[in-house]
């Protein structure tokens, strides 16, 4: 059973990357034949060579670290507050009255538009970026936590109460676990968002990080650095998404 399973996996994987391979081959061919300016699109092989070079020189690892740190610290802060506020709205009428309108207004705001405002208020350093990621990721987490906490089966709460769970402990014993699938759904939205916000902020404000590295490629007329940086951020995005899925499959296997 395991063997066929693994084979099936390989088959599906190969199938799913057919189109990608065709795309990459086309890229190389088009660029090698000089159909586009080198500055627009250098050949894939040049980009890969530059990617390896920047990785070995330590530049990509260093800037990845800066980007990841900003994104993840901000994400953790946004997640903690998002869970707290989301659950509070669902469980407390006063909190609902106060926070629900804020969430309704805040959620759809394209947070990226506020980068210049953040630069005015908090400067261009790490702090400013982290605060923006925290605020940007707060909304999807809060909305999803609220929705799932509002939908908890009444009889779960009743069961817990009859078995002796106090009102205060109810939050940890029932509300949080029951809402956790919704919270993780929010996290799956918030995670790529945290990378996007960090990346864009770095492009605009500098201070290192992959966004800044990419823009530097433009300023120094080095298109291979631009594309190599894009590869790095893509790999990071895919790896984090995979990691979150693994965690989900493990901790939410009861869903």
């Amino acid at each position: 059973m395991d063997v066929t399973y693994a084979r099936d996996d390989v088959v599906t994987f190969t199938k799913s990357i057919y189109s990608l391979i065709i795309f990459l081959v086309l890229w190389e061919a088009v660029a090698q034949m000089g159909l586009v300016y080198y500055y627009y699109l250098p050949p894939l092989s040049d980009v890969l060579a530059r990617f390896v070079e920047l990785t070995l020189s330590g530049e990509i690892p260093y800037h990845s670290y800066l980007t990841l740190r900003r994104a993840l610290v901000g994400l953790v802060i946004g997640t903690v507050f998002g869970i707290l506020v989301g659950i509070l709205i669902a469980r407390n009428a006063v909190a609902e009255w106060f926070f629900d309108p804020i969430i309704k207004i805040g959620y759809p705001i394209p947070i990226i538009a506020l980068v210049p405002v953040f630069m005015l208020w908090f400067g261009i350093g790490d702090q400013s970026k982290i605060i923006m990621v925290a605020i940007g990721t707060f909304w999807p987490i809060a909305v999803n936590a609220r929705n799932s906490a509002q939908r908890i089966d009444k009889n779960y709460i009743r069961s817990a109460r009859m078995m002796g769970t106090s009102d205060r402990r109810l939050l940890w014993r029932v509300v949080f676990p029951a809402a956790s699938p919704g919270i993780v759904t929010g996290l799956q939205i918030a995670l790529p968002l945290s990378l996007i916000i960090t990346f864009v902020f770095e492009m605009v404000a500098g201070g290192g990080g992959l966004g800044a590295l990419e823009i530097e490629g433009v300023r120094t007329f080095d298109p291979t650095q631009v594309y190599a940086t894009i590869i790095a951020i893509m790999l990071i995005g895919i790896a984090l998404d995979r990691a979150l899925r693994l965690l989900r499959n493990h901790y939410l296997r009861w869903v």
Binding site: N155, Y156, R158, S159, V174, P177, A178, W254
Partner: peptide
């Protein structure tokens, strides 16, 4: 409970 109300987690 008529609908069991077990904790799914």
């Amino acid at each position: 409970f008529q609908d069991y109300a077990l904790f799914p987690w």
